[in-house]
């Protein structure tokens, strides 16, 4: 007898199936990311030498380079996540894959485990390399960088991994729901960029209660927010340092500068500003990564549940 019998299709079998179906794509993508990483490292090395001779804030260019990790996350969502289930439906191969002795949800678990792990590793690599690039920036004559700015904040492995896994999971879930590859890719791309934008613009500043600084009226203005910090809010405060809200006392004033006497008459004792100090950036990166990972887990659960429903084939 040539028949081989086993009691259970194991995780190793599922991973092997995932590997054998996506082998080419995994190898090519990993090669490209590795190449890009080496390229970035080399370029940044010579770029620093060249840029410092120019006395020009070319770190902006380096920042853009560091967004390569986000590009990878976007690609992971659109080219690995979105087609993972959608293409199976489109080519009807899900009838082959799920028609053997493995349920659709276990098949999905194997595929997600392999591609998710590869995605996480490549994203971590991209994060490390972009972090290294940005660390060269201070040596270029710029003493400080605004670490909360886009492309700088994200240039860290934990954020990249969170981002990429979120994009991948979003693709998987959207693909499972739409069952169409192209629409799933489009929705994934837009959704990923949208969520990233929302977090960067409106979410990030609220991860922790901000630090408040207050300055009583004085003839000389001192900056209330350090250059490298993330400004959250600012305005007038009363004698106890409590913000007075956005009130229009009709003090007039030109160019946004309102007469101090008028403001004082209304009880304003000085200016305050809320900000997130630069020292918090590592913590904030972990928080953002956590948010992405929670979202990713939710999306994968949704896809898993949707496949188990089996309401349509």
């Amino acid at each position: 007898m040539t028949t081989v019998t086993k009691t259970r299709v194991g995780g190793g079998d599922l991973l092997w199936v995932a590997w054998r179906t996506h082998r080419t794509s995994i190898l090519v993508t990993s090669g490209l990311v590795a190449l890009a990483a080496v390229g970035m490292a080399v370029v940044s090395r010579y770029f620093v030498a060249w840029a410092s001779s120019l006395n020009y804030p070319t770190y902006r260019v380096l920042e853009q380079f560091s967004s390569i990790g986000l590009l990878f996350a976007l690609a992971a969502g659109m080219f690995w996540g979105a087609p993972l289930v959608a293409r199976e439906y489109e080519l009807r191969t899900h009838l082959l894959a799920w028609g053997q002795d493995v349920s659709a949800s276990r098949w999905l678990a194997g595929q997600v485990a392999l591609l998710g792990a590869v995605t996480a590793c490549l994203a971590a690599l991209a994060g490390v390399v972009s972090g290294v690039m940005l660390e060269r920036v201070p040596k270029m004559g710029v003493d400080t960088i605004r670490v909360f700015e886009r492309n700088v904040f994200e240039a860290a492995p934990q954020v990249q991994v969170g981002c990429a896994l979120f994009a991948f999971a979003l693709g998987v879930a959207v693909g499972a729901l739409t069952r169409r590859t192209l629409p799933a890719m489009a929705i994934t791309g837009i959704g990923f960029l949208g969520v990233g934008e929302v977090l960067a613009r409106w979410g990030r500043e609220h991860y922790l209660p901000p630090v408040r600084s207050f300055e009583a009226w004085s003839p000389v203005h001192h900056p209330l927010v350090p250059f490298t910090a993330l400004p959250v809010d600012s305005g007038y405060a009363d004698a106890n340092g409590v913000p007075m809200g956005d009130q229009d006392w009709g003090c007039g004033g030109r160019n946004g500068i309102e007469p101090v006497e008028c403001l004082r008459a209304h009880g304003a004792a000085g200016r305050y500003a809320d900000y997130q100090p630069a020292e918090r950036v590592e913590l904030f990166r972990w928080i953002e990564s956590g948010i992405f990972l929670v979202l990713a887990a939710g999306l994968l659960l949704l896809a898993w549940y949707w496949l188990r429903r089996a309401r349509r084939v």
């Binding site: 007898m1 040539t2 028949t3 081989v4 019998t5 086993k6 009691t7 259970r8 299709v9 079998d13 599922l14 092997w16 199936v17 054998r20 179906t21 080419t24 080519l91 009807r92 191969t93 899900h94 009838l95 082959l96 894959a97 028609g99 053997q100 002795d101 493995v102 098949w107």
Partner: peptide, 28 residues
């Protein structure tokens, strides 16, 4: 299934390998 689905980017040999992994009983 009606569509006789197989992975077009894989060879019949590999399709059989996949099936061997995904089935509890397999007669290669």
């Amino acid at each position: 299934a009606q569509e006789k689905p197989v992975y077009k980017h894989l060879t019949p040999r590999v399709v059989l390998q996949l099936a061997a992994r995904l089935n509890l009983v397999w007669d290669q």
